[in-house]
Nucleic acid binder design. Structure first.
Lengths: 301, 301
DNA sequence: CACCCTTATGCTACAACTGAGCAAAACCCC
DNA sequence: GGGGTTTTGCTCAGTTGTAGCATAAGGGTG
């Protein structure tokens, strides 16, 4: 019983803020996530991922966290079962080396509910309801899932359910990577760029983890430049969470947690009152278990 | 660049409540966690883990969640790098098949702060301070870590920092599995049973995850029998979290979340007023994103 | 059976936090 | 100088969290 030999592949969701938009590092066309095999020289999986990403981007990663490992039989590949260990990394843009930054909402456009939810209400919802009604046996179960994951019929939209939403679209045959057999006769697909293999699914996993994480750990700052205004920080959080937050309460939250300190300088030229510049107090990472950035949600949607 | 061939091993932290004590399934002596290789017949990693555990325990797992994957070079083993994918599973005791249930606090006794913290204050803390002072260069850094992870000098004890605490004890040479070179000349070890290999570390990872999880998902119920009193539920949560909670507030929390419903029966014979029996409302898992069991902490310690 | 001990359950007071909105301050542009 | 924009300070009500008092309902004992 000595076990099957497998080859291990590292897969990285590398996130940075490019021109204020949360973006993910991709290579090639169709876009794929940076990846590389585990080599004998690599000390650990994390070290291997760091090595691959730094080689491909020329930048060092501030933050790197393991996401998930899978080795399903039905994934493509022959000659040994492929095993993928995925990671989530945060960095600042710089030059992406080969490859390029792509707005992650170009892959998952329905996840951006900051200003406009027409894509959800006018396009996706009706097609999902169609799918709900397509199976009389499963109907009740399907309806519940749609309601909860997409926050329809009275439920609240929950930003962290990224993966569940993607899986629902996958199962309902609304994304091109769904098995042909699941696709309805004349069901139109949902907007959003496709990625190679199951990489869009991995991206959804990363986004879900990141949205959950900013709520209880101060990781946003890994994406910010050394000095920033509170508005820029808020924009960043809003971009990640895909929803708007209440400005004054956001400031209160950040300040009372002592997450930042003033640099003394101000940032002018935005057409309004100049904003004070702040820097992240890196010490808080050590001081105590800080609460991260629980979003003061703005309930109006 | 075809990647190194590795063998994948599944490692499971299986938790159940045995006589009211949170216990973990172990095999052999020194105790090790149930494990098994990934075989070609296994559909997925999760399916492989289920298969192994169910074969070894004769019971089916209610809940199974991936913990972490590692493939460090320095782990023992030759002939291909060993890669371990660890899982956390919850179940009810029944017959453990081969193997046996062991109170998890026998491996990590300092994590149980429900009634007595003398182990921490009288035994562990002094030895840690000794370690802090042993390196003049690192002293400040070491002091901070000890203060935060063990909640000393004014900081609060944080139940979820299980892994960080174990790592600190490991680094400070206070557990037998620490490299010999780290062990102080005459430093005495800290109480707690050893496990095979790095399994105690994996156990700590599982405990940390479980403690974090009960705060935001109703997973405790996987460990309870079908009908239970609120006191039994509270005991379970306290045992997992390793700390006492405020009874009245705990009940209010559970009730107002509609997590349970009365069975109509009562449980007498405890020497006091008989308690009503409840059952878990499994439907809530589907209804909405329920908040789990945020512990109404009792601050007095 | 009267009394005490134990456990279960109900309820209230108070502190802390959250969501929401008003308003003034400080810049830009015309 | 006036209107628009962004930043910042502050209030206020509703909710949630912490803590403790009090009563209910059993068992055991003299």
């Amino acid at each position: 019983m000595s076990g099957q030999a497998v080859t291990a592949e590292l897969l990285a969701v590398i996130v940075a803020l490019v021109d204020g938009r949360p973006s993910v590092l991709t290579l090639g066309e169709p876009p794929r996530l940076p990846s590389g095999p585990l080599l004998p020289s690599h000390r650990s999986l994390q070290a291997a991922t760091r090595a691959w990403v730094e080689e491909q981007t020329g930048r060092s990663l501030g933050y790197l966290e393991q996401l998930y490992t899978f080795a399903d039989l039905d994934r493509e590949g022959d000659g040994g079962r492929p095993m993928s260990v995925s990671y989530l990394g945060l960095t600042t843009p710089g030059s992406p080396g080969i490859g390029g930054w792509r707005d992650w909402y170009s892959f998952l456009p329905w996840e951006d509910t900051r200003t406009d939810t027409r894509l959800l209400t006018d396009v996706i919802a009706p097609r999902l309801w169609q799918w709900v009604d397509a199976d009389t046996g499963e109907r009740a179960e399907r309806r519940r899932r749609v309601q909860i994951t997409f926050g329809l019929s009275g439920e609240t939209w929950q930003p962290e359910l990224v993966l569940q939403r993607y899986e629902l679209l996958y199962e309902s045959g609304l994304v091109p990577e769904s098995p042909d057999s699941w696709r309805g006769a004349d069901a139109e697909l949902v907007p959003g760029d496709r990625m190679a293999g199951d990489h869009r699914r991995v991206l959804a996993t990363g986004l879900a983890r990141l949205r959950a994480k900013i709520g209880y750990r101060p990781v946003v700052f890994e994406l910010m430049s050394p000095a920033f205004t509170l508005r820029q920080l808020q924009d960043c959080v809003e971009a990640l969470a895909g929803r708007a937050v209440h400005t004054q309460n956001f400031r209160r939250l950040i300040e009372q947690q002592d997450l930042v300190e003033e640099t003394g300088e101000v940032h002018a030229g935005t057409g309004g009152r100049p904003a004070r510049l702040y820097r992240f107090r890196r010490q808080v990472l050590h001081e105590r278990h800080v609460a991260g950035t629980t979003l003061p949600t703005t309930r109006s949607r």
